[in-house]
Simulated assay, not measured.
Amino acid sequence: MKILVVLVLLGLHSAAAVIHSLKYIYTASSQVPNFPEFVTVGMVDDVQTDHYDSNTRRVEPTLNWVKRFKEDDPQLWERDTENLRGHQQVFKANIETVKHRFNHTGGVHVYQLMYGCEWDNETGDVNGFAQYGYDGEDFISFDLKTMTWIAPKQQAVITKQKWERVGEGERWKNYFNKRCLDGLEKNLNYGRSSLMRTELPSVSLLQKTPSSPVSCFATGFYPDRAMMFWRKDGEELHENVELGEILPNHDGSFQRSVDLNLSSVTPEDWRRYECVFHLSGVKDDIITKLDKTIQTNWGKTGDGRDGGSPGFPLGAVIGVVVVLLLVVVGITGYFIWKKNKKGKDGFKPASTSDSGSDNSQQNLKA
Rank of each mutant, 00 (worst) to 15 (best):
S280K: 03
A316D: 12
V322P: 15
G299K: 04
V327R: 02
K341T: 06
V265T: 08
N340Y: 07
R305E: 06
T296W: 05
T296D: 03
D291S: 04
K339G: 01
N297A: 09
K300T: 14
C275L: 03
T266L: 13
V322E: 13
Q295N: 15
V327S: 00
R271H: 07
V329F: 03
D306S: 08
P310D: 02
K344G: 14
E268S: 11
G319M: 08
L279P: 14
T332M: 02
T266I: 13
I287C: 00
F277N: 03
G343A: 09
A350W: 11
G319F: 09
W337G: 12
G346H: 01
E274H: 07
G346C: 02
G308S: 15
H278N: 14
C275I: 08
V329S: 05
T301D: 15
G307K: 01
G315S: 13
Y334A: 01
K283Q: 08
D269F: 06
K283N: 03
D291V: 04
A350T: 12
G333W: 01
T266G: 13
G302A: 12
I286D: 01
W270C: 04
K341P: 04
V276H: 07
G302I: 05
Y273V: 07
K300E: 09
K348C: 14
H278E: 13
F277S: 00
V276T: 04
L324Q: 10
I336T: 06
V282K: 00
L314H: 11
K339E: 00
K300I: 12
G330K: 00
I336W: 03
